[in-house]
Design a protein around this nucleic acid. Sequence first.
RNA 1: GGGCAGUUAGCUCAGCGGUAGAGCGUCUCGUUUACACCGAGAGGGUCGGGGGUUCGAUCCCCUCACUGCCCACCA
Length: 951
Amino acid sequence: MLEKTFDPKSVEPRLYAAWEASGAFKPSEDPNAEPFVIVIPPPNVTGSLHIGHALNNTLQDVLTRFHRMRGKAALWLPGTDHAGIATQMVVERQLAAQGNIGRRDMGREAFVDKVWEWKAESGGAITNQLRRLGASCDWSRERFTLDEGLSAAVRKVFVQLYKQGLLYRDKRLVNWDPQFQTAISDLEVEQKEVDGAYWHFAYPLADGVTYQHPIAFDDEGKPTEYETRDYIVVATTRPETMLGDTGVAVHPDDERYKGLVGKFVTLPIVGRRIPIVADDYADPTKGSGAVKITPAHDFNDFQVGKRAGLEVINILTVEAKLNGAVPAEYVGMDRFVARKAIVARAEEEGWLKEIEKTKHMVPHGDRSGVVIEPFLTDQWYVDAKTLAQPALKAVESGETVFEPKHWEKTYFEWLRNIEPWCVSRQLWWGHRIPAWFGPKFDGAANRASPNEFEIFVAETEDEARQLAYDHYHALRMERHDIDVLAGKPDSADFMKLLDRFWNHGGPIPIWRDEDVLDTWFSSALWPFSTLGWPEKTADLAKFYPTSTLVTGFDIIFFWVARMMMMGIHFMGEAPFKQVFINALVRDEKGAKMSKSKGNVMDPLILIDELGCDAVRFTLTAMSGQARDIKLSKQRIEGYRNFGTKLWNASRFAQMNECVRVEGFDPATVQQPINKWIRGETVKTVAEVTQALEAPAFDEAAGALYRFVWNVFCDWYLELAKPILNGDDAAAKAETRATAAWALDVILKLLHPVMPFITEELWGKTAEFVGPARDTLLISAKWPELPAEWIDAEAEAEIGWLVETVGEIRSIRAEMNVPPSAKPALSVVGAGPETKARLARHRDLLLTLARLDSAREAEAAPAGSVPIVMGEATGALAIADFIDLAAEKARLTKEIAGHAGEIDKVNKKLGNPDFLARAKEEVVEENRERLAEAEAAKAKLEAALSRLESVG
RNA sequence: GGGCAGUUAGCUCAGCGGUAGAGCGUCUCGUUUACACCGAGAGGGUCGGGGGUUCGAUCCCCUCACUGCCCACCA
């Protein structure tokens, strides 16, 4: 006998082990099996499973299990991401907590070793948590973004892009994170609104220049009054940057300042003479219309500086402290301390004109949370604009489809306005950039330039060395020809340097770039690097491109778009056929879950409390499209109850010896209820299959829920009871076999969503009764049932029965007829069909509606209550319980309801336009509706008048 | 400033041209041997406002309002 309730805690680990041991997680090797492939969005190796992962991975598992059961070679490829900054942070924190020396004291190699140590110990946490979720990943193919193979792929991609001119080194402003002291990409910058101010500074004009500044205006905005100024006002939100100002810009058409273009101001504190330039960037309507230009510390100013040929003066250190380029008293000062100091000094010296309090957006590092500084450095950039074009085309053409479709707009928007991608990071944990530097020889000066280098990009150091050799050798030959042969005397030093490398006999003195790559660089290769690229592996041939990517919208830019770019560029084909964007999980009030708010729901705790299946079903059912998921525990409990319901239905089946019969053919069933449930099962299979193909997870879950609970349990099992308890051996045997069959189909359909309880029942039902199962449920075949098994007649008949029972129950409840009372039902005016149905299902009617009898009659007995039964009228003899007034009210209300319906339909049918233009079947449907409503109304009116004549 | 999404029963959401639905919650009744993590029944909505298209609009179009998110913006 099945236990009274399902115990997930003991079952889940056992079944997971059984699945894994059976080899079911590996894709079928049947050469005819069509592949179905999902690559997991690799969670950070530092991560632990949160509810978002639970949703995302549940959906992937549902798809994988579904397609596996359908006979596809289903591969769900798992892995983790090395997560550069995040992991480096975790390990640094751990080192600090253990009282170890810091990263910098430890040195790069030792630190990286520590990170690997940490990874070996703690890095597997999240994959074990995925197992607890029931994830049927092929663990034998698990990858890590920093493993040997993926590192080789990264090097190859880097070198190829470099050779193709799609990756280059450039000196420009980057988003600099002073906490981690690394560049970050635009995407890693978060704009946050903070309280700030515009500080208006008066910069004195140099060389005794003055001008007339308008101070009063007429109604048309024309200046009427001027004052003479020997200064120009600029405003800033970052006063400390003024130390790096190298110009002031005004709009070329700004009348106020026309005369000042080409003049100079004397920068306060610094004393630098800087020009006033004309540039469209200056907006006459903003502030004073004049803007200070700090090319080294502002993206816009950098551009203005470039156009106007302004000097670029970097005033910050990597820690965002003021460097030696500023007056001595500020050197080494923190940027925010300097801000205050400068404002104080401006006030003191009288050039602070105004402080305008304001809120404005300030860029912050998404990991560090500190304010980002635009900072002038050399970094590596990917030419994203070029790579984006085919990625755009792939989605435009439908090669790759987003689901829901509207996310394509987001994808397009970003790719169409894409900027170069800064991929170098000044970190230690990550893929070290395969680029080597060598001295650059300045031909004119004939010596190695201290700040410029030759770059040699290669997959290995040996290759880089070879490149360097070739380069310097060619250079040596060339210079030899040009300079030495031409007898130029100043060639000597230059040649000496080159000769030193050669004649020394030692290796070419090149050194490797210290930087590592953005974590997302390796993630971008995930769909093909994990399958073995650049090797031509069997997996790569079979499983690329993948089928569906399931991920959150928050990483469409970070990850999806970049995989599209890299996948198409290196594989010639987009990496996915479909991108399914899942919703964001929020708490029950709709707030984003966060540790600081304390509203985090830990999926592992929920699994402990309510079982994995309940959590999975909830997430599946709630994964409607394009919306946040507001998750409440109550909801999960509801689906836990659903599992229990299924469990109990199975117990019922078992108690009633509903044994699977080998070779049972549902096509042969005779009993109406069996024909009916057979048809309902067929419909559900079709519905669930279609929903999972789309995929529309919520629809699949909804269809399963309704079928199992509201159809199979509420009606089929109830309808089966009289037969199962009756004497008709043939009917009993047929019903037992049908019930067992339907239950098997249910287990299969439900398995992708609720793998544990269904697998357990699959095993248990075979253990107690029926023939042994030849496979685990995970490997069972998805049902395919013929549409002919839907029997319209059985459907109509059971529909009639269900409706009649419902009517009677409703009246009993409304009239407060006690459950113990068993009234008689008289059926008046029945046609042959109703008579036949009444005869066939009399027992069921008596049981389900708790009746004493149900017979045909000539007329309704006095004091009975009418029920519409198609063409016939049922009369329920509950005279003893009737409150006359209440019954009159009930009838009146029902009659009014029908009257309203009749009015509405009559209006429609009376409209000639409707008759002329509406579809024929719609008109017909309305005619039928009218007839039905009129008949029902007539019956109830007759009953009401009888009641009134009595009363 | 630009873009996207949403606004349907108390709550959470489905429906997306032809009779307004589900789950939860609420109320009433019920220990009939699968299940109280249950069963039966009931109440509850002028489908955000205003226009338009249509024989017909919750559904299509326009517009307004509100909510959420993304991108841009440090004078």
